[in-house]
Nucleic acid binder design. Sequence first.
DNA 1: TATGTATCAGAAACCGGTTACATCATAGCG
DNA 2: CGCTATGATGTAACCGGTTTCTGATACATA
Lengths: 353, 353
Amino acid sequence: MLTIRDIAREAGVSTATVSRVLNDLQSVTEETRRKVLETVNRLGYRPNGLARSLSTKRTGTMGLIISDITNPFFPEIARGVEDVLNAYGYNVILCNTDGHAEKEAAYIRLLVEKRVDGIIFASVRTDKSDLSDLDANGIPWVLAGRTLPGIDRDCVVVDNILGAYQATQHLLQLGHRRIGYVSGPFHVSVNMERLEGFRQATSGYGLNASELPIVEADFKQAGGYAAALRLLGPQSDLTALFVANDLMAIGVLEAAHDLAIQVPEDLAVVGFDDIPLAALHTIQLTTVAQPKYEIGAVAARMLLDKIDRVNTDGDRSSAKVILTPKLQVRRTSGADLSPQIGRQPATVPDAEK
Amino acid sequence: MLTIRDIAREAGVSTATVSRVLNDLQSVTEETRRKVLETVNRLGYRPNGLARSLSTKRTGTMGLIISDITNPFFPEIARGVEDVLNAYGYNVILCNTDGHAEKEAAYIRLLVEKRVDGIIFASVRTDKSDLSDLDANGIPWVLAGRTLPGIDRDCVVVDNILGAYQATQHLLQLGHRRIGYVSGPFHVSVNMERLEGFRQATSGYGLNASELPIVEADFKQAGGYAAALRLLGPQSDLTALFVANDLMAIGVLEAAHDLAIQVPEDLAVVGFDDIPLAALHTIQLTTVAQPKYEIGAVAARMLLDKIDRVNTDGDRSSAKVILTPKLQVRRTSGADLSPQIGRQPATVPDAEK
DNA sequence: TATGTATCAGAAACCGGTTACATCATAGCG
DNA sequence: CGCTATGATGTAACCGGTTTCTGATACATA
């Protein structure tokens, strides 16, 4: 493979000049520029990004840490991240951690060695110390859709407590009093925030939240299915379930179907996330919508900002951005949708992009 | 940030020795090894992967080119790729091209400059010349789930013609004669193969395939929705639609619902891919299943093989792997499922992983 | 004509690793 | 006891760019 020295020799100039032409820097005669570019094109020279990065200390690569891209919550976030970063000339390394701390730690080590210009965590298992480790190594990071105890900067999140509160209140207003919570893993902060919103809403109605059943699952469809089977046994008196994310809510709907429980007549279900399939007319899941693409896009911009700021050696951290979730009332909560006469308008979920 | 020279000085050895310890190469006294490792840990040294890659000519990074990660067909492929490559110490750069040739070309240029160790194309717009360009630059590649005219090696594909043939035959056997084809973009090879399978099957029943309506769409839900509206107008005599992928088939189902057309009573629908949501009890889409995770995993292994083979300077290309698709009969085609008494068994699609 | 000032281009150091080769000490052997 | 084989370590070149510093040239000005 050709090097800059080959081009320099062939064009009869120095490597410095070739470099200047390639980065159109400073002053180079039109004549030499032409000569160099001609040589570059004729020989099909491709500069070596590694060598460039080694001396410029910029790789043009970012890391994106998520738990699992097959969870429909993440693709849109990833897309938001990728679109913004790519527009600024960056590439994205995708890291699926499955929520395992060791996998995450291994990825972080790899990303540090690759000297990525920044990392976006759309899923976190590390604690603050690992992040300050990154700070120490001069690698900016941002949290997308998650927070960590003790961190109230450099993150873009949705107000999970508010969203869960509204979802639960929606069920309460429909008259439900025996409401179960299908929980994500207890160690995940977003889940605990949603649980908190659930508790606040039920307490507001004079219910003792600790008497309402809570089952911990794994944010996956199969987990939601299993949790529902446990919660909806024969002696169950539950009339509604608030489910910590849509994927599990889908599992709950499957379980209800298999148990011959009618939704929403016998059981109201509300999810969280508003993943694309929630809007399908055959599902019509009532859920708390998060602006997923925007979360990714905002996080990416925040990271770019942070990088800029490091270079101009100003303040190192960005503000916290809180996006507002929106309760999306559909069929599965059994709310009276009659004000909207007749059929729902055609739903074409992915038309907006 | 620390360099290997800092460690060498601090430990009182040469950089060569530090390097040897870090790569546990050759012979180093237990004594010095301990001394070096102690220094490395004490100072928290992280080797610079760029420098390493520059001299070893290995980056430990691969590129994965897909059209859009928010298309539910791709996450599983990406996951298969990532799992395998990560197990071998590689990272994956994700590239969303939206099927645009220019975006793809730009990404390829970037990946070449970054000197990735290989590229997996799960979506291709380039022609053979760009690929031989990669060959010329010594960057191995593999096609996953797609072929290109004139290429019959280095790819793992599903037999699209067979799959489409079986799907169409399924409709024909159910008595349908007026069958429409909701097509993906005509320039995409997998789509043309599916169309070919559709033609072969209909011809086999003495139908003139050119008389059956075909509408080109974009492989997206909204596209399928729009195509269905065109195909299912008031004067339509179609009783079945074969749809080139599941995402569009979902759009077709939405359209049918909005047009008050009963599926499968008034219209049978068959898709292709078997994306996760096709199996949901509320959808039950009959479709041709592709082993998506396996496509990604096999492609990744094939790429690793190819890299090995380049190093041992043997043959440069791998065989073609053809996986067999499987017709998954569900509700939307209206087949008589009565042999299976009563309810379908609980479907928990993501339980297998 | 002499001097100051821009502009253009080259030489060489540098980024931070790896590794071929050289050196040196020690052990083994006749 | 001297020679060689072996193993541990160091020296320095190299990977392929960027960038500082410096020199050369041309032009304008006094």
